[in-house]
């Protein structure tokens, strides 16, 4: 038996022993994927849907995922894929090599491949192979992650991905135990700092009124310490999975708490994950002008509306706006057309 070194659960693995995520085993004394190159789905979208608001704005991307997770979030939005036994899903998984996946992305005119259905640390070797081919083809790699990797796993994530959105879901040990199924937030805070040193990082916090909403100020203080330009996405929680019967949080109440917590501390604060949000535009940190406008369609559906930047600067006051990548979506041309 060995210990898995990918995530902080550090599960024992053996030839017939899998860990919490059920995606790795150790038939030859090393951590190996059980289901390499197997994908639950892929679809064409744009970076805002992930969400990435400050990385390659408007770029078309191929959204992919596998199955399995190392968390047990009570509100998981993808439980039907993520919480089931991966072995039982294999009959409907797509078997696509890294080369073929990159080819699909290029045929569809995508500028990026983004892993966003489940947790990327459960499929790291596959993603490393995809990244190697994608980078040769000039494609950007992005992901959503819960940030619970080991330092070694985090270094691998940082090497694979050009942009990462880390979910900072809560701070207290009680919240982590009851809502996420992990003992504490320490590894996540450590990994946000580590990833921000090596790649583009945005952070998302699903806000549950009365459960983690009192921690927003502390989260903002932490993120401001990482850097005031870290884009923070406060999400109104969409109650799914074990929380399906619970009330939707109040937009007005949570919005006020987000604004109060972040005022003067972070340059880019967004409040969305519900239709018609008015808090999805990027405001110039210098003068408050709306320099990037978006529409919010709720869960995974945000859209770029207009970019008013002069390069990466505010056209009114000239202040720099933190962006990774060219904001011109016209650069995404269809390779096959």
């Amino acid at each position: 038996m060995i210990r898995c070194d990918v995530c902080e659960r550090r599960c024992p693995l053996g030839p017939d022993t899998t860990g919490y995520c059920r995606m790795y085993h150790a038939p030859r004394g090393q951590v190996e994927e059980r289901f390499p190159d197997r994908w639950c789905a892929y679809a064409t979208a744009r970076m805002e849907t992930i969400p990435f608001y400050h990385a390659w704005p408007g770029a078309r991307c191929l959204v992919v995922g596998t199955t399995g997770c190392n968390f047990d979030c009570r509100y998981c939005a993808n439980a039907e894929v993520v919480k089931v036994d991966p072995a039982g899903q294999q009959d409907v998984m797509l078997d696509v090599s890294p080369e073929d996946l990159v080819a699909v992305a290029r045929k569809r005119g995508c500028r990026a491949i983004v892993f966003s259905v489940n947790e990327p640390t459960v499929s790291l070797p596959t993603l490393e192979r995809v990244a190697a081919v994608a980078k040769t083809a000039g494609l950007v790699m992005g992901c959503l992650t819960n940030g619970y990797a080991t330092p070694e796993g985090t270094a691998r994530l940082g090497a694979i991905f050009d942009c990462v959105n880390v979910s900072l879901k809560g701070l207290s040990p009680q919240f982590c135990r009851n809502y996420l199924g992990v003992p504490d937030v320490g590894p996540i805070l450590r990994n946000i700092q580590a990833l921000a040193r090596t790649t583009h990082v945005e952070v998302t916090t699903p806000v549950i009124e009365g459960v983690n909403s009192h921690e927003l100020g502390e989260m903002v203080d932490f993120l401001a310490g990482v850097g005031p330009d870290v884009a923070w996405h406060a999400f109104r929680l969409l109650p799914e999975y074990k929380m399906r019967q619970e009330d939707y949080p109040s937009v007005a109440a949570v919005g006020a708490q987000v604004e109060a917590a972040a005022r003067g501390k972070l340059n880019y604060v967004y409040f969305h994950n519900f239709i018609g949000s008015r808090w999805v535009n990027t405001l110039c940190p210098g003068c408050g002008e709306a320099v990037i406008e978006r529409h919010s369609l709720g869960c995974g559906g945000d859209r770029l509306q207009a970019v008013h930047l002069d390069g990466t600067a505010c056209p009114r006051c000239g202040a720099a706006v933190a962006l990774r990548g060219d904001p011109d979506p016209a650069t995404a041309k269809e390779a096959c057309s």
């Binding site: 078309r60 569809r108 005119g109 239709i275 529409h295 859209r303």
Partner: peptide
Amino acid sequence: YRYYQDDTDDKAYPY
């Protein structure tokens, strides 16, 4: 249809 071709910044009817 390649629906994603219509998904541009100036797409009408965003909702």
